[in-house]
């Protein structure tokens, strides 16, 4: 039992951090009215980016905490830029958000494979011993603190500051908000920036902390888990923080049950089945609180209609 707990707690905690960052990031994009179908592709891309950045920084500086730290930061910045491009494109033009989301997903998968392989080539060329994020023992506590901080700060920003008011307002009715002289593009650009940073952080920690290496296709579907957590938590940070515990637990524990005779295919697909089940439960739950309702304009094309 003690053995199990010694293994379980850090594993659970690292999974929790990854999925919570990702889910909170997804929440901000969708609260601003942008359907986040890009999430899985950009999660895969960011997890590959983190690996390659880590290799490059390890070669340029030296393997260690600084290189790891820098690679996390750079991944977060790169993903933030990609996400703000995503939200901006979806706002500037009345495109189908679904199609744009899927195309970002595909490109994310493809670029992720190329980027990761670039890192792997340098890795075998220089034989760097990449000491992955050194937080497993000493620094982990900072990541945990960061999770708590992110949940609290995002909640505060969304519901107490003007920035959050703008994000929620453009998610409700961008046309109406635009008519009062507010830049819808800017509000959505900013929410894309923040979301991308968090999703990038999730992807980076996934590679550098949870997996500790890279192989092609890594991270596939883990973005969707973050998405499912965001929906199951009613796109509301405090609830996401709670829901994420259960998802992470399921994700961590199921493979463990393999030794108890559970087929590997069941344990790999169970999180997806659980995600679907969670979405069903959420959608049939009657929501009394206005705060928990879906953003009114989620996924709708935005344009100014000129009519007589």
């Amino acid at each position: 039992m003690k053995e199990l707990l010694e293994w379980l707690i850090p594993t659970l905690a690292s999974a929790y951090a990854v999925y919570t960052f990702t889910a909170i990031g997804s929440t901000i994009v969708e609260r601003s009215g942008i359907l986040n179908l890009a999430i899985d592709g950009l999660f895969v891309l960011s997890s590959s980016l983190a690996y390659t950045y880590a290799i490059y920084f390890s070669i340029a500086l030296q393997p260690g905490t600084l290189a790891t730290f820098l690679s996390v930061v750079f991944t977060a910045i790169t993903t933030a830029l990609l996400y703000s491009a995503y939200t901006t494109l979806n706002t500037v033009l009345p495109v189908s958000q679904g199609a744009v989301g899927l195309s970002f997903m595909f490109v994310g998968y493809g670029l992720g494979a190329i980027v990761g392989n670039l890192g792997r080539v340098s890795f075998s060329l220089y034989r760097v011993r990449v000491e992955y994020i050194g937080v497993a023992q000493s620094g982990a506590i900072f990541v945990y603190l960061l999770v708590v901080l992110v949940v609290a700060v995002v909640h505060l920003v969304l519901y107490k500051l003007k920035l959050g008011v703008l994000v929620r307002a453009v998610g409700e009715d961008p046309r109406l908000v635009g008519q009062t002289g507010i830049s819808v593009v800017r509000a959505r650009f900013l929410s894309g920036l923040v979301s991308g940073m968090l999703i990038g952080l999730g992807g980076a920690l996934f590679t550098l902390w949870r997996v500790g290496g890279w192989s092609q296709g890594q991270g596939l579907n883990h973005g969707w888990l973050g998405y499912a957590i965001s929906i199951a938590g009613w796109r509301y940070p405090p609830l996401i923080a709670i829901v994420s515990v259960f998802f992470s637990l399921a994700y961590v524990l199921l493979p463990y049950l393999q030794s108890a005779g559970l087929p590997v295919e069941v344990s790999t697909s169970a999180p997806y089945a659980i995600s679907i089940a969670a979405m069903v439960v959420v959608s049939i739950t009657h929501r009394k609180s206005v705060t928990l309702l879906d953003p009114k304009s989620l996924g709708r094309a935005f344009f100014i209609e000129e009519q007589a």
Binding site: G41, L102, S103, F104, M105, F106, V107, G108, Y109, G110, L111, G112, A113, I114, N117, Q216
Partner: peptide
């Protein structure tokens, strides 16, 4: 795979 995904996505 990578190329196909990029072509399709773009």
């Amino acid at each position: 795979f990578a190329f196909s995904q990029i072509f399709i996505g773009v």
